[in-house]
């Protein structure tokens, strides 16, 4: 196993239902793996397993260590995980929320160091949250909370960033801005990024490689140009999907069926 993230033959069964079925993939440091697939394909389950949830079968290694054998603290040093719907505790300030990302770096009984505080400010500035630092996290808009959660994950400073729909609530401009930021951090810090993505165009623009899941099985894995093909996407999603190339960029659009539109 040589990649930053190595998933080998992972299956997850919940109450007799197979949610993930024998999935294997590898993500190197400094690369971005997009996990694609329709609702219920198993994307979030795969990300949770990479973040430390025990699979029914198979194994996950992160930065060379079996993730299941690590303590929560050592796991958090390796993987920063952002779930699809993070919890925003009422009454907690934006600053304190981002500071949670430093938990694994603090002594068990100690308070935060000046270094922790500096990393928090750095994440807050990167996500453009300075004006909100005193706000109660429960009062923020959907887009603001999504940037906030990302700031927490960035402040964690783990070599592997696992993001479940990290930009789903952001407007087009903000989404682009945040994805550019993740891309920049990936390059600067040689992060391995694994993210579930619904926006196939964004996946084509930002991910080095993509894994397409369907019904818990890995249908295809490769570069975006290898995976984002009309035939494959039509089979997994719906027949009306078109893959276009505009100014050299891959653009995936879902066309309305003509009979329905008239």
């Amino acid at each position: 196993m040589s990649g930053a993230v190595e998933v080998r033959g992972v299956s997850v069964v919940y109450g007799g239902t197979t949610v993930l079925d024998d999935v294997s993939l590898s993500v190197d440091r400094g690369s971005w793996m997009g996990v694609l697939g329709p609702n219920g394909a198993g994307k979030s389950t795969l990300l949770r397993v990479i973040a430390g949830e025990r699979p029914t079968a198979g194994a996950v290694a992160v930065v060379g260590d079996d993730i299941g054998a690590l303590t929560a603290r050592r796991r958090a040093h390796r993987v920063a995980y952002l779930p699809q719907s993070p919890t925003y505790p009422r009454g907690m300030t934006v600053f304190d929320y981002v500071l949670l990302g430093r938990t694994s770096h603090m002594g068990r009984l100690a308070a935060e160091s000046s270094g922790d505080i500096e990393f928090v400010w750095e994440a807050i500035r990167a996500l453009d949250l300075e004006i909100l630092i005193a706000r109660d996290v429960a009062t923020l808009s959907g887009g603001e909370t999504q940037r906030l959660a990302l700031a927490r994950a960035i402040a964690q400073r783990a070599p592997v960033l696992v993001l479940d729909e990290a930009t789903a609530s952001l407007d087009v401009a903000r989404q682009h801005q945040v994805l550019e930021l993740i891309d920049q951090l990936r390059t600067e810090r040689e992060l391995a990024v694994v993210s579930a993505v619904h926006d196939l165009t964004a996946a084509g623009q930002f991910c080095d490689r993509v894994a397409l899941l369907d019904g818990g099985r890995l249908r295809s894995i490769g570069t975006p140009s290898e995976v984002l093909t009309e035939d494959l996407l039509a089979d997994v999603y719906e027949p009306g999907i078109r893959v276009l190339t505009i100014d050299g960029e891959t653009v995936v659009v879902s066309m309305r069926e003509k009979e329905k539109s008239t």
Binding site: T71, A72, R75, T87, L100, G101, T103, S104, L109
Partner: peptide, 23 residues
């Protein structure tokens, strides 16, 4: 008193607290 910071971490729920480095 020494555990009060960890109670703040638990306020995000067990799954997230675990991913932040707390058992």
């Amino acid at each position: 008193v020494f555990g009060r910071r960890l109670m703040d971490v638990l306020s995000v729920g067990d799954t997230e607290a675990s991913s932040l480095g707390v058992e």
